[in-house]
């Protein structure tokens, strides 16, 4: 029986073919994304004058720091809530019978068809002080005064979790479907309680799904723009909007592109750090 290493060495020559199938996506990424992007990101060290002045703002400008912190806080909260809720839904979907599953899938896909723009206005209509949600809560006597559910950070979170939840559910569900249910059954037959079987067998198996969904949701959350602008009442500023303001309304492209570069490098660093903490191959699978 050959050792693992021998087997690997034996596979090597065939990797050429696999590199070949990586190529189309890689070529597109390089020529249609990285090259034009680099052309712009370079302005972060050339505009308004050559040098690292824009990057110094990371350490000196309270407004940049505040925006970064707000973005991190909201993205982290959104990711946490979306993963938690998404896990429950994906789990229930996996256990449901086929027709129930369809209905659940329909509910998950439903929000996709309502553009983020329209959804924001729908939330404003639903959650504002005179909207149906507050009216309902007051009619049931649960509250006396309308709750400030929108035009603040709460509103931004509700809106963002709503946008991100389908991504979390579908990614987790795709992962859970691939899990062999007999493993859980086996654990049960060996005397584990339902909860133990879940915690010791099922949960670890869904870890790639959780990491994949978490990465997806967190990175996407960092880039939110329309939802915070509308649901935050103008008082919740996230980094993507900050960058857009610098680029669209002012001539400070250097500042905007510096922030974009910083964001990009932080994400790359976070992915790298993640791959150190957990097994490299586990990050995306493999």
């Amino acid at each position: 029986m050959p050792s693992q290493n021998d087997a690997r060495a034996g596979w090597r020559p065939r990797h050429g073919t696999y590199w070949l199938i990586i190529l189309p996506a890689l070529a597109m990424l390089v020529f249609l994304y990285l090259v034009p992007l680099a052309d712009v990101l370079v302005t972060s060290i050339t505009d308004p004058k050559p040098g690292l002045d824009n990057y110094l703002l990371l350490f000196t400008s309270t407004s940049v720091q505040k925006t970064l912190l707000t973005t991190l806080r909201i993205a982290a909260l959104t990711t946490f809530i979306a993963l938690l809720l998404g896990y429950v839904v994906a789990y229930a979907m996996r256990a449901a019978n086929s027709s129930q599953q369809r209905l659940m899938l329909f509910c998950v896909l439903l929000p996709f068809w309502i553009s983020v723009l329209v959804r924001s206005f729908a939330w404003i209509a639903l959650l504002s002080s005179r909207g149906p949600v507050n009216a309902g809560l007051m009619a049931w006597g649960l509250i006396d005064e309308p709750l400030p559910l929108v035009r603040n950070e709460t509103g931004v979170l509700i809106g963002m979790v709503h946008v991100m939840l389908p991504y979390a559910v579908l990614t987790l569900y795709a992962n859970m479907r691939g899990i062999d249910v007999r493993l859980v059954a086996a654990a049960r037959s060996l005397g584990a309680s339902r909860f133990q079987a879940f915690r010791m067998v099922f949960l670890p198996l869904t870890r790639p799904g959780l990491i994949g969904a978490g990465t997806l949701v967190f990175i996407l959350s960092l880039g939110f723009y329309v939802t915070p602008a509308l649901l935050g009442g103008g008082k919740v500023l996230m980094i993507a909007e900050y960058v857009a303001v610098q680029i669209n309304d002012t001539l400070r492209w250097g500042l905007g592109t510096m922030l974009a570069t910083t964001l990009m490098l932080s994400v790359l660093f976070a992915l790298w750090a993640l791959s150190r903490i957990i097994d490299v191959k586990r990050l995306f699978g493999a």
């Binding site: 680099a38 712009v40 990465t215 960058v243 857009a244 492209w253």
Partner: peptide
């Protein structure tokens, strides 16, 4: 491959 998700769209739009 993840980069296009991590860079604010407006910056890519310029490029």
């Amino acid at each position: 491959m993840i980069l296009p998700m991590a860079v604010p769209t407006i910056v890519y739009a310029l490029g």
